[in-house]
Simulated scan of single mutants.
Amino acid sequence: MAYTGVVTTGGPGDVRETSGLTITKVSVGTIDNNAYLLRCRETGEQLLIDAAAEASTLLSLAGDAGLASIVTTHRHWDHWTALAEVAAATGARTYAGRDDVEGIDARIDVPVDDGDTIQVGAVSLTARHLKGHSPGSIALLYRDPSGIPHLFTGDSLFPGGVGNTENDASRFASLIDDVEKKIFAELPDETWVYPGHGKDTTLGAERPSLPEWRARGW
């Protein structure tokens, strides 16, 4: 079946094949947190984005291949409650945005800055710092050389808007500016967006609404 990105907590994952990565999306925890397992098709090495909850589910998803890396998109508790357990069980190296490291109650081995590269086997992911939902929120970009770009946004970009900035005008301005400059201005409409909760989207589906988002302030 074709990938849709629609998953439910306790249900099966949805799998997408790209030229370099196999991407598996699952929903875990009580508030529909998405976790993404990325497997390099050339080497078999695996990386997990957001060990949000349900360590047993995530370890089962990784299987015997284990995990080389775990990336936490931001410091909010619902995106890392299983991090310590999954990292301990797999020995995975852990990554998070530099300005969010102190807010994560688990070991972070590598603080990440804007533009840093994170490897999963033969595949390179580029980190983009999107400040606003949290101080150190990051997105991960995979530019498939034989297909569309794939962007894992955590809680910085969703269908219908940017992430929650708690009615803080300066935080919203920072986030919408970063999202427009680093994401929409640099990437094409066909870029597939994998958010931290709920359904996926594309930049093309969201681009016409950017002026509306900025005008409404959230």
Rank of each mutant, 00 (worst) to 15 (best):
E54D: 15
T126E: 15
G5M: 04
A185C: 11
D200P: 08
E166A: 13
L210T: 01
H197T: 00
T24F: 09
G204Y: 05
I108V: 03
G44T: 06
A185R: 11
K181Y: 10
Y95R: 12
A122R: 07
G196Y: 01
L58Q: 04
D144T: 06
S56Y: 06
A88Q: 08
P111M: 01
L21R: 03
H197C: 00
L151E: 03
S56H: 09
V15T: 15
L130C: 07
L151V: 01
G103Q: 01
W77N: 11
K182V: 02
Y95Q: 12
P149R: 02
W218P: 10
E180A: 09
P211A: 12
Y142K: 08
A2H: 14
A35R: 00
T165S: 06
I70C: 02
V123I: 12
E186K: 12
G147A: 07
G132A: 05
D99H: 15
L140C: 06
D78E: 14
A139G: 10
G136W: 11
D113M: 09
T117F: 11
L83H: 07
P145N: 03
M1G: 15
G91S: 13
R41K: 11
E17N: 11
V7E: 00
V101C: 15
F158H: 09
P208E: 12
I70A: 01
P149Y: 03
A173M: 14
E212T: 14
G91H: 13
L151S: 01
I108P: 02
V179K: 11
A89I: 02
Q119V: 13
A173H: 14
G160K: 15
D105W: 10
T4V: 02
R39F: 10
D189V: 06
T165E: 05
D189L: 13
D189R: 12
I23S: 13
A127R: 00
T202N: 08
A89N: 03
G198Y: 03
R16H: 10
M1Y: 10
F184I: 15
A185N: 12
V26S: 02
E102T: 12
W80T: 05
G10C: 01
S27D: 00
T9W: 00
A127T: 04
A89S: 06
T191A: 08
K199S: 10
E85L: 04
I23D: 10
S134E: 15
E186V: 10
Y3S: 09
T202R: 07
P149F: 03
A87I: 09
A89M: 04
